[in-house]
Computed example of a mutant assay.
Amino acid sequence: MTVNSKNGQNPAGGGILTRPDGATIAYRRLEGKTPGVVFLHGYHSDMEGTKALALEEMCRGQGRAFLRFDYYGHGKSSGDVLFGTVGRWAADAVAVIRDLTEGPQVLVGSSLGGWVSLLAALELRDRVAGIVGVAAAPDFTEDLMWQDFTFEQRRTLMETGELELPNCYEPDNPWRVHRSLIEDGRNHLLLRDLIQLHCPVRLIQGQKDADVPWQTALRLADCLASEQVEVILVKDGDHRLSRDGDLIRLTSVVAAMLGATQES
């Protein structure tokens, strides 16, 4: 691991984690008591979103450890998102948790981050005190992309290696999807079997989510081995769940989970 300062972070709490292949992962963290909180952002998002910042503010007020970071190809990390894969992003998450945190952690994953947090937890079971998913999207490359592609889109993707998709958030900036995202995603599907995690899990899901059907949260809850799973449905909630009330709900859910675990 290499970082941009002697102790792993600059005075503002930011730093760079260098991966074995030379890729760099940008992060920001707070030192503090445990369990800490790790935020995992969504696809084509970054660590500067409102949910990450709201959680950071909550942790700062509690004197609690907090970590947010950008996956490969996102935000201030190196690489092109086009060539990122679920496996690579999960490996990024495992690396930052192992190298940049100590003790138990509550993982908070938004959309893609919900999938990544589950994969990371399966690798680091003794380090994960709980998981909070916000519009968690496990298996989205297969269930919400490939299965919805037309025959022509599938053929284009397989023959050319790339596919352009409309971006509802930035219409002038369409998303490009690489074949490797779909193919690698099939190696990490979770909703086809029992997910051997036994920690507390909270799933917050908007019922007006246009990207991830709210039934996904119920399906995920059913697949989890843990008996400590609660699903919170927000009737008027969209995919981002970033309104003021959504952020209050999120921080309250995370605070309650932290309060239910032993602190050091």
Rank of each mutant, 00 (worst) to 15 (best):
A121R: 07
G185E: 07
S180D: 12
V81S: 08
L181Y: 09
R88S: 04
P35A: 05
S111T: 06
E123P: 00
G36F: 03
V108K: 07
D209Q: 14
Y27F: 15
G259R: 08
W115T: 01
L157G: 09
A52R: 07
L122C: 03
R179K: 14
A23I: 03
A260N: 14
D139P: 01
A256N: 12
Y27I: 06
P104C: 03
V132E: 04
T160A: 13
S180N: 12
L82H: 15
I248A: 14
S110A: 13
P200F: 07
L241I: 04
A65G: 12
S111Y: 08
L190V: 06
A210C: 01
Y71V: 08
D246N: 08
S226L: 10
G36Q: 05
T101R: 08
R125V: 09
T34G: 10
Q205P: 06
Q9G: 06
G75R: 06
A65I: 02
L53P: 00
G63L: 07
T24F: 02
V231R: 09
N10Y: 02
K235A: 09
G73V: 00
A135R: 00
H188M: 03
E142W: 15
D246M: 07
D172A: 10
E183C: 00
G133F: 01
A221E: 03
P104G: 01
W146E: 13
W175M: 06
G133H: 01
R155T: 13
M145E: 04
T160M: 13
Q105H: 11
D222C: 00
N7Q: 12
P104K: 05
S264H: 12
R127N: 06
R176K: 14
S264A: 13
D244L: 11
L224R: 09
G103N: 05
L241Q: 04
R88K: 11
E56D: 06
Q105N: 14
L247D: 04
G114F: 05
L250A: 04
R155V: 09
A121S: 13
T150K: 05
G161T: 11
A221P: 01
Y27D: 05
T251F: 02
V96C: 14
V3C: 11
W214N: 03
A221H: 05
A121I: 06
K33W: 01
V254Y: 03
R19E: 12
I25M: 06
K235P: 00
V229C: 13
L197P: 02
L17V: 11
M58K: 12
P104F: 04
L233I: 13
D172G: 07
R28L: 09
R249T: 10
A26K: 02
L144F: 14
T50D: 12
R192H: 15
F66E: 01
T141E: 14
C199A: 00
